[in-house]
Design a protein around this nucleic acid. Structure first.
Lengths: 246, 246
DNA sequence: TTTTAGTGACGAACGGCGTTCGTGTCAAGT
DNA sequence: ACTTGACACGAACGCCGTTCGTCACTAAAA
């Protein structure tokens, strides 16, 4: 018997109990549930994503979902992996590893930013989906082919992934705050929030916090995009310093 | 933050009765609530930390807490800042900036690891507590005194903080999983979980994922501690490369 | 001493959540 | 035609954060 949850020969993780071959007698299947969930996530945020809301989107009751999805956690994993599927990978070219690694990071950043709240769901579980492995093979393979020892390449891939998801997670939090404040404009939120932070820093006693209170403008100067790029270059340069000479 | 409960140094007013045994009422204040919350967080994890459980710990009902704490979110922030208060900072010495930055990172890592689940609560809100600023002043001041431009120092501090909290967050997730599986031994969990991951990787089709499936042992070789150190050195080396020559 | 005002404590309850139970329903196999 | 069994789904369970209204108590005013 063929488990239909497998695509292209990738087995499902053993701890995810495999379910029956979904026979679409009625119009309800895992695919539809994932899509509905992602739609809600993008339009209304993670806080609005609950089983009742997903069921409502599909014109049914919450109990119906549990025939296709183990629970909310698994649904979030599935949605996350679906988003990772939007990552476009180039042909590997080890001679341009740094350039390709940078492009990869920017691509992941782009995809996670496009589905703002998905990163908040992503960090809640360790990803093991197909598309996660696909991305991993790209980065890992690139480093290996460049001549880096497998063990070190594994470390680099791990830290880079953490950085990408961690940064996106932080971005998600701002997005959630913006939504909670009822704002839809990014600029409006940025000015309001950063203004508050700046005021807080300026009000600090300068005897105890001389540097922080003095350089407030520098502390709030860069936005998320520039911070992401800076951290990325920091990492890439660190990796380059560890690359075997050729 | 103004605490109106005065403890010492205030003499009893003369009109106070001489004869009263005086239980001054129930003793309940913010301090007690924070401590109870942290106790539960450490002993039972974030999932077990809810307002009813905290109230129970203090022999009262959940409604009583809201006189001292705005809600669960604020309580988590307060607990987090309290944990940050355990961070010990040395005297700044810019001539040993790298060493001190490394020691600082290890110290934060130590404190966040000691209260395993607190990082999961930490990333949920942007920290603005006193102890958070204290740590920021240390790192920022260190970089400034080393000669780095304020704007760049701000970026470095931001990325380092993200790394520290992000890594601790990831650790928290493993901790939560371990607890959810009913294990109390770290070794037992590690072998069980990593074993599953390894099996999953090994089962991948080697045509599509040649590197990942080939170097499974290297992918799972290092534990969280080594990964943290490696990423930290990566960052520190990147920062060093950007330090102005002297 | 009596009254008044104010405050913290807290039982009860509201609304929302994830999830399960039991029953209904209908297509496929016999 | 009957049986089977997977899917659909209304209803409900138990848990959560939070609010309301009431009560107990104290400190100041009268």
């Amino acid at each position: 018997m063929v488990d239909r949850t497998e695509k292209d020969g990738v087995p499902a993780p053993p701890w995810r109990r495999s379910r029956k071959p979904a026979l679409p007698r009625r119009q309800l299947n895992q695919e539809l549930i994932i899509e509905a969930g992602l739609r809600i996530l993008d339009a209304e945020g993670l806080d609005a994503l609950n089983m009742r809301r997903v069921a409502q989107e599909l014109d049914t009751g919450p109990a119906s979902l549990y025939a296709h999805v183990a629970g909310k956690d698994e649904l979030l994993e599935l949605i996350y992996d679906r988003v990772l599927g939007e990552i476009r990978l180039p042909e590997r070219d080890a001679s341009r590893w740094k350039e390709q690694l940078r492009a990869y990071a920017m691509e992941v950043h782009r995809v996670l930013s496009a589905h703002a709240d998905v990163a908040r769901a992503a960090l809640a579980n360790i990803p093991t989906g197909e598309n996660s492995v696909r991305a991993g093979e790209f980065v890992f393979g690139l480093l290996i082919e460049t001549g880096m020892a497998p063990r070190e390449a594994s470390l680099v891939m791990d830290r880079l992934s953490l950085y990408l998801v961690g940064d996106a997670y932080e971005g998600s939090l701002h997005y959630a705050r913006m939504r909670a404040a009822g704002m839809s404009d990014r600029r409006e939120y940025f000015e309001s929030f950063v203004g508050q932070i700046a005021g807080y820093y300026r009000a600090l006693p300068s005897e105890r916090f001389p540097h922080v209170s003095k350089y407030v403008d520098d502390l709030i100067a860069d936005d998320g995009e520039e911070r992401f790029r800076y951290g990325l270059e920091l990492l890439l340069d660190g990796v380059e310093a560890r690359m075997p000479r050729r």
